[in-house]
Write a protein that binds this DNA or RNA. Sequence first.
DNA 1: CAGTAG
DNA 2: GGGCCTTACTG
DNA 3: GCCC
Length: 534
Amino acid sequence: MAPKRTKTNKNPSPEPNGMFSGMVVFLVENGVQSLRLQIWKQKLIQMGATIETRLSKKITHVFAMNSNALLQQMDREQLQRFKGRVLLFQWLEDSLRLGEKVLEDSYYVGVDSEGKGDPVKSPVKESADGNTSGSDEPSPQKKMRSSLEGLVDGADKQNNAVKNSPDSPSSSDSLPFALSSTIMSPRTPRTPSQNSSLPYCPPDLNRNITEIFGKLINIYRAMGDDRRSFSYYKAITVIEKLPYKIESADQVKDLPGIGKSMQDHIQEIVTTGKLSKLEHFETDEKVRAISLFGEVWGIGPATALKLYEKGYRTLDDLKNDDSLTYAQKLGLKYFHDIRTRIPRNEVQEMEQLMQKAGEEILPGVVIICGGSYRRGKASCGDLDVVITHPDGKSHKGFLPRFVNHLKNMKFLREDLVFSIHSEEGTDSGVDTYFGLCTYPGRELRHRIDFKVYPRDIHAFGLIAWTGNDVLNRRLRLLAESKGYRLDDTGLYLATQASGGKRGAKASASLKFDTEKEVFDFLGFPWLEPHERNL
DNA sequence: CAGTAG
DNA sequence: GGGCCTTACTG
DNA sequence: GCCC
C-alpha cells in the first residue's frame, strides 16, 4: 500500500476532495487527550479541513468535548454571535470511523442560554485525560435537548427539522435498515448516541504492527531490557487507538512514543508485511531459549541466560538442573498448567469457595477476587485475591490460618512465596501469599495471590489489584500531579524527602472506605470494575 | 546482594 | 547522556 | 526504545 508519494508533501497531505474539505474549524482543546487531539488534527487537515487557532468569522465548525469544555474557552456572548456549528468531537470520531461525514444533528453542543445548569449531566466527565471517551454514561444528546434552544440558533435552524431525532429512537430503532443501507460497515454504527456510549474501541486496524511489536516486548523483556520493552508497550497503546490504518510512517511520525526507530519499523511493516529484526530474533537460538526459560515462573533474564550458557535449550533440559530454586522447579513442573487460562465461571466458583472458607475462620472477613476476573473478563490468567476485615484489626494473623485451611481442603497445593507484615509493628502491613491452587476435583494448577489489607487502606489494594495497569498508571500520575503518591497500600502526601530518597512514607496513608472515595478524591471519573479495561 | 514478581 | 517504576522476599 |  502506501505507495511512496512523489515529491509532494511529507505532512499529512491535504486532499482537496477529502471529506472535510471546505471546513474551517476551531478546536476547543480542553479535556481532550493530547494523543487524540493530534490524531484529529492530522485527519482534519488530511481530509481537507483548515484548522484555525483562534475564533474568527471564517470558522465554520467548532469542536469541543462537551459544553463545559466549550464554556471554558468561549463565553456565551461569543457563542451567541457565532454562526457556524458547534459540535462534539464525537462527530469527528464517528465520521472518521464511517469514512464519511455523519449527520450533525445529534452532535450539537448545547449550552444553557441562562448560564446556570449545564446541559452536560456530570460536570466532571471527560476528565482531564479522558480517553474513557465514549464510556461515559451520559450520552451526548439527550442531555442537551432543551439546552440547545438558544444557542447556535443559526445551526439550530437548519436542523430543527430533525429536532426530535435525538430523543426519538427513530433513527436507529424504527427504521434500522433504512439507515444501515447507506452505511457499509458490518456492524451498523447506529445512532451516534449509541456509538458514543460504547467503550470506544477502534477495530485493530493496525494489528499487523501491534502484533509484531508485542512479540518484541516479550523478547526484550526476556533479555532484561525492560526499558526498551516498555517503549514498544507504549507504542502499541498509542497505535491501538488510531482510528485509521497506517499506510505510511508519515502518519505516525508525530505521535508520542513513536521515534525514529519505531517509524522505520512501521514503515517496513506496512510495506513488506514483516519486520526483519523480529524474524532475526525468532530464528536466533539464544533468543528463543532465553525467551522460553523466562516464561517459567521464578526465572528471570539473568537465570535464563545462565541456563542457556549451561547448554540448555528446552524446558526438558531444565528438569535435570538442581540449581533451580524450589519455586522455579514448581514453575517448571506446572509450566503448562500455569499458562492455561481459567474460565470465568470457575474463578467465580473458587471465589465463593474461598469466601466460605474464610468465613469459617473469621466471620465477617471480606474476600474479593480482583484482577481480570473483577474486570469482567471471560477468562483469567490467575487469581488475585484481596482480603480485609471491616473491624480494622482482625485481619491480622488471618492469612496463615486461611492458607492452612485451604491447604487442608486441597484447594491450595503448593507455596511459592509467603510474607507476613500485619503481625509486626509496621502497620499498613499487607500480608501476601503466592501459591498454586486447583479447581475442586482437578489437578490443573493455577497461580493464586492473596493480599490481606487493613480495612483503612484496603480500597487501595482493591484498585491496584483490579487494574488494569493503564488505569493504575493514570491514577498514580494524577495523584502525583496533585502532590500525592499513590500505590497499592495507600495515598500519601508527597514529601520532598520522597524525591531524593524514600522514607517519604513517614506519614501514614490517607484513609478511605471505598474505591469510589479514592476516585473522587483524586478527581477521576468513577469507573465500575468492568469499565477499567483501558 | 542479585534476581524476581507484581 | 541519563532517566524511565516501587517494594520485599528468596537463596 | 523514547524523551528531555
